[in-house]
């Protein structure tokens, strides 16, 4: 089936089987391998992307369901070669070790900060509760998101 999806602001077309999952459209057809496949069973959140600005598990959405929609992946976070405040805060706070969960964490955190620009730690933990990390113990991730919120407020202000 012919589909058209706006990915990180760019309209892209593809001819896919209905059974193609969104994550494989992104990784294999469009070559955007920043989005990871972890469990492939809807549990880990490594594959989280924004579908029309809403974070979803892209291993559990069909590519054909995204036809006509916009998708943002981790590759869409930086602007003009500059890291997004979330990305630099993750780096500064050691919010990642192996980095496998990080793209999904970043997208879920992006959606949280859009709705709740000044989240409490409990709100951050709740918003990230669909994203599993096997390395960090989460503490540094929570601190990174809280710091990114401050950095973004300063950028705006």
């Amino acid at each position: 089936m012919e589909i058209a999806v706006t990915v990180n602001g760019q309209l892209r077309r593809a001819d896919v089987e209905p059974r193609t999952l969104l994550v494989y459209l992104l990784r294999e057809t469009f070559g955007l391998t920043g989005t990871h496949v972890g469990c492939d069973t809807t549990h880990c959140g490594a594959c989280t992307v924004l579908l029309d600005e809403v974070p979803v598990k892209s291993c559990t959405v069909l590519a054909v369901q995204a036809d006509g929609s916009s998708v943002m992946t981790v590759e869409g976070l930086e602007t003009d070669g500059r890291l997004h405040p979330l990305q630099s805060a993750f780096s500064d706070h050691h919010g990642l070790q192996c980095g496998y969960c990080t793209p999904g964490m970043l997208m879920a955190a992006w959606a949280l900060l859009r709705e709740t620009p000044h989240p409490q730690p409990a709100e951050i933990r709740r918003a990230l509760s669909g994203n599993l990390c096997r390395c960090t113990g989460y503490q540094n991730i929570v601190e990174a998101v809280a710091d990114a919120a401050q950095r973004m407020a300063q950028e705006v202000g």
Binding site: G45, V54, P55, V56, K57, T60, A108, A127, S129, G130
Partner: peptide
């Protein structure tokens, strides 16, 4: 129910 990502769909 489930987690925020599943709840979104």
């Amino acid at each position: 129910i489930a987690d925020p990502l599943v709840r979104n769909r």
